[in-house]
Computed example of a mutant assay.
Amino acid sequence: MKKIISVVAFFLIIAIHLIFLTSILFEKINTTWVVLGVILITAMITYSYYHSSTEQEDHFLIDLQDIFYIAIGGVTTYFLNVDLKLGAVIAAGITGTLAALIPYLKPKSNTFKRIPLTVYCGAFVGMSQPNVASGYSFILFACFLTGILFIGAKNLFNGFGGKLGTLAFGGVAFASLLIYLFL
């Protein structure tokens, strides 16, 4: 079951990248060849990523903690960004810096060492502007969806930049889509 979740998360991340890049290209350039080139490059990258080795872990309770910490990061950043009007970048920076200090409270704790990564992933969700995120309920829902993506992709794309931001973008995009479709 865990392998299926990883494969689904892998292809969701690739789809998110493809949709994002294609939307940028359609907005800026109306050339079909450029779009086909991006699709071809994405397919080649997908093939190479898919054939890289991944280690499977099965830690259900730790996965649930990850969702909780993503929500902490998202809500904290959204509060600093919207309510205190510090701006998205400063709010994410403060949240990330505070999260980075947590492992120093208990240096030998593996749980404390995992917190900064998940909180910072949530910080990207919390950077959403009020015209996208209608409030804390939206942020919590987007953090939950981001957490699901995070769990599915925790052994994928390690060492590649942009993973946390892509997961957060996917969570916010899926939350917006689901709210649009069902409300």
Rank of each mutant, 00 (worst) to 15 (best):
G171Y: 01
L167D: 06
K163C: 13
F68L: 12
I94P: 10
L86P: 03
K108D: 15
A100Y: 12
C143N: 07
I148N: 01
A142V: 05
N158D: 09
K163R: 15
K2D: 05
V38T: 02
Y180F: 15
V132G: 13
Q129G: 03
N110G: 12
G126L: 02
K106R: 05
L181K: 13
Y50G: 10
T77N: 04
L117P: 00
F26Q: 10
L36D: 02
N155H: 09
S53I: 01
L80D: 11
N30C: 07
P107H: 03
F26I: 09
L145I: 15
T111D: 01
A100H: 02
L36Y: 10
F160G: 06
L12S: 11
L18W: 07
G96L: 09
L181P: 02
A173W: 11
T95M: 09
D58Y: 11
S52H: 14
T31F: 11
S52A: 15
I102T: 00
G96T: 10
T46Y: 00
L181V: 03
K113S: 12
V34D: 11
G159N: 04
L183T: 13
V7W: 01
I16K: 00
A92F: 08
F112G: 01
Q56F: 13
D83Y: 10
F79E: 13
Y50T: 00
H59N: 15
S176I: 07
F20L: 12
A100G: 13
L181M: 12
L80C: 06
F79K: 10
V132S: 11
G37T: 06
K113F: 00
A142E: 07
S128W: 10
S6D: 15
Y47W: 14
I5N: 05
F11M: 10
L145Y: 01
L181C: 02
M1Y: 03
P107Y: 11
F79G: 00
L98P: 05
G135A: 07
P103V: 01
V82N: 04
T77S: 08
L156R: 15
V172M: 10
L145S: 08
V38C: 10
V8W: 09
G165R: 08
N158S: 09
S52E: 14
L25E: 12
G73H: 06
K163L: 14
L36F: 03
L18H: 15
V8H: 09
K113C: 03
F169V: 11
V132Y: 09
Y104Q: 07
P107T: 03
L105T: 13
D83H: 13
L12F: 04
S6R: 14
T166I: 13
V82R: 00
K2L: 05
A92I: 04
I67L: 09
G171I: 01
G159K: 03
T22C: 07
S134Q: 11
I151N: 06
L80H: 08
F124V: 08
D83A: 08
L61M: 04
